[in-house]
């Protein structure tokens, strides 16, 4: 479908954007004195309240899962070929691959380790890993699954397995974004990969990994020189700050100095700020992609706020973690 064929879809999304949570609502949610008050505010906004649940966390997770599903149901109604949005779902597939590989070597029986919303059924993934028949998996995932499983079998190094899969996931996200032909999704993938590489480099410094390991772990990135980032990570945090201050991500430096959660927040806010221009695009796939990202962003913010309420965290500490809203 070319961009010019999204007139109907974008008009519907424009109406739906009215229901997105804005900053004022998040402030109101942050000010809620109890989980019940917060849930009532969300219910007034049209958020689904689950009828049955075991614990408060279960109730929240069911509500968030239902909201996520609502978004994808709407998009499935509007777009014939959903593969254009693979870039937003691939992460779940690779998360499930990681879970399947680790599950195959442990006695874990829980199915909750799998995340819903990927492009591949977790059962297919589990079956492929258990039987070592990777043919049902997408072509680009087959060698990754095999390599990750062999690595875990031979080295029992979970971290190394994670690195193999995470790097492949980032590469797949970048390729899916290019295939989508949507500037918004390409931008999303670019920022996602850059943020992931920065996180990998920072974590590597903190865990004392060597340069070879870091180079192996970093995914190819259009906006960062991974060679230089790996070099900097090999030297320490200050070198990472020095390198980043010369890139498009210089604003990340003060956030990295604050805390990992401040950096995570900065990454998500950066994506939201960059896609905000889609609010005024009348007929491309961009507003649809931006709507999905905005919904994911508000769902993760609501999770942060509600978790804060459950765990009695101070409002200020939760506020620091809450993301910027799209509208």
């Amino acid at each position: 479908m070319t961009d010019n064929q999204y007139y109907y879809a974008v008009a519907r999304i424009r109406s739906r954007e009215l229901g997105l949570l804005n900053q004022a609502f998040i402030d109101q949610l942050l000010g809620a004195k109890s989980i019940e008050e917060a849930m009532r505010l969300l219910q007034d906004k049209g958020w689904h309240m689950p009828d049955s649940y075991t614990t408060e966390s279960d109730r929240i997770e069911k509500m968030l899962a239902s909201e996520k599903q609502k978004t994808w149901d709407l998009i499935a109604e509007l777009v014939d070929d959903m593969s254009v949005f693979d870039v937003l779902l691939i992460e779940n597939d690779y998360h499930n691959l990681k879970a399947a590989v680790k599950k195959s070597l442990t006695s874990v029986k829980h199915s909750e380790i799998f995340s819903s919303g990927g492009t591949i059924d977790p059962k297919v993934m589990e079956e492929a890993v258990t039987t070592r028949d990777f043919s049902p998996l997408p072509d680009e995932m087959e060698p990754v699954a095999e390599k990750a499983l062999d690595t875990l079998l031979h080295t029992h190094d979970g971290q190394l397995t994670d690195i193999i899969i995470d790097k492949a996931a980032l590469k797949a996200i970048g390729e899916a974004a290019k295939r989508s032909g949507s500037p918004v999704l390409e931008l999303y993938a670019r920022l996602k990969i850059a943020a992931a590489d920065i996180k990998i480099a920072v974590r590597a410094v903190k865990t004392g990994k060597d340069k070879k390991f870091i180079k192996e772990a970093l995914a190819p990135c259009d906006t960062l020189n991974t060679e230089k980032l790996a070099e900097a990570a090999g030297e320490g945090m200050d070198s990472i700050y020095d390198y980043l201050s010369l890139t498009d991500y210089s604003d990340a430096v003060p956030e990295l100095k604050k805390s990992p959660s401040a950096f995570e927040r900065w990454c998500d806010n950066l994506i939201i700020r960059n896609i905000r221009s889609e609010i005024s695009h009348p007929y491309t796939i961009g507003p649809l992609a931006a709507y999905i990202i905005a919904r994911e962003n508000e769902i993760s913010t609501v999770r942060i706020v509600l978790s804060g309420l459950i765990n009695d965290l101070p409002e200020e500490s939760v506020r620091e973690r809450a993301r910027e809203m799209y509208v």
């Binding site: 010019n4 007139y7 008009a11 519907r12």
Partner: peptide, 14 residues
């Protein structure tokens, strides 16, 4: 036709 598609989208929601 083009504007009609957008109009139908709007009327679907409201």
């Amino acid at each position: 036709g083009r504007a009609g598609q957008a109009a139908a989208g709007l009327v679907t929601e409201d």
